[in-house]
Simulated assay, not measured.
Amino acid sequence: MGTRVCSLDELVVDQATRVVIDGVPMAVVKDSAGDVHAIGDTCTHGEISLSEGFVEGETLECWAHGSQFSLISGKPLNLPAYEPVPVYQVELIDGDVFIDPNATKEI
């Protein structure tokens, strides 16, 4: 089990929330389908916090230069970013969100 980061009710639909676990910054998103995702919070193009960006469907867009990252795979969907961000395993237990910063998903 990972670290508790918040309750599910604290997450706003289609809005990223920045959390830091053991020094690892992450953007946590509850999408419009109710699924919770956690990806690396730092854009691979410009060292910008992705949690300040825009959620649309299953993507998180960097507010600075417009690169969109898949919440599922971490892969950038357009330039200028071309390197993926890590995707972390999320567990929902009794209405709480748990994330392990050492458990990245392989997509």
Rank of each mutant, 00 (worst) to 15 (best):
V19H: 02
L60H: 04
D31A: 10
L11K: 01
I39W: 01
S70A: 08
G2D: 13
T17R: 08
H37G: 09
E91M: 05
V87I: 07
S32L: 10
D31S: 12
G23R: 05
E10K: 07
I21H: 03
V55A: 11
H45S: 05
F69W: 04
V29R: 00
A64C: 14
A81K: 01
H65S: 06
G95R: 09
D22G: 04
V5D: 02
N102V: 09
V97K: 00
W63Y: 12
A81N: 01
E56D: 14
L79C: 06
L92M: 12
T59N: 08
I99Q: 00
Y88T: 06
E106A: 12
S51I: 09
P80N: 08
L11C: 07
A103H: 11
D31W: 10
E10F: 06
E83N: 14
V29P: 00
D41T: 10
F98A: 06
P86Y: 06
C62Q: 02
G46D: 15
G40A: 07
V19N: 00
H65E: 09
G46M: 14
I48A: 11
Y88S: 04
G2A: 13
I72H: 07
M1V: 12
I107W: 15
D31P: 09
L60G: 02
V12R: 13
V85W: 01
K105C: 14
P101C: 11
I21F: 06
A38R: 01
E83K: 14
C6A: 15
E91P: 00
S67D: 04
M26A: 08
L77Y: 06
K30N: 09
F98K: 06
V19E: 05
V20D: 06
Q89C: 09
D94K: 07
C6M: 14
I48G: 00
S49V: 04
D22A: 13
E56R: 12
S7N: 13
T3C: 15
P80V: 05
V12A: 13
I93W: 02
I93M: 07
R4F: 12
C43L: 04
L11Y: 03
E106K: 14
A38G: 08
H45R: 05
A27T: 07
P86H: 07
V36L: 06
E47T: 14
N78Y: 06
S67E: 01
P76E: 05
V90S: 03
D94T: 03
D96N: 12
G53R: 00
V36A: 03
V90G: 02
L79S: 08
W63L: 11
I107V: 13
Y82P: 02
E83G: 04
V97N: 02
T42C: 04
H37D: 08
S73D: 11
E106W: 09
V19K: 03
V12S: 11
L92Q: 12
T44A: 15
L60D: 03
G40T: 04
I48Y: 03
I72Q: 13
V28H: 00
T42Q: 04
I99M: 05
G74C: 09
D9H: 08
G74R: 01
L71N: 00
D96F: 02
E83R: 13
K75D: 14
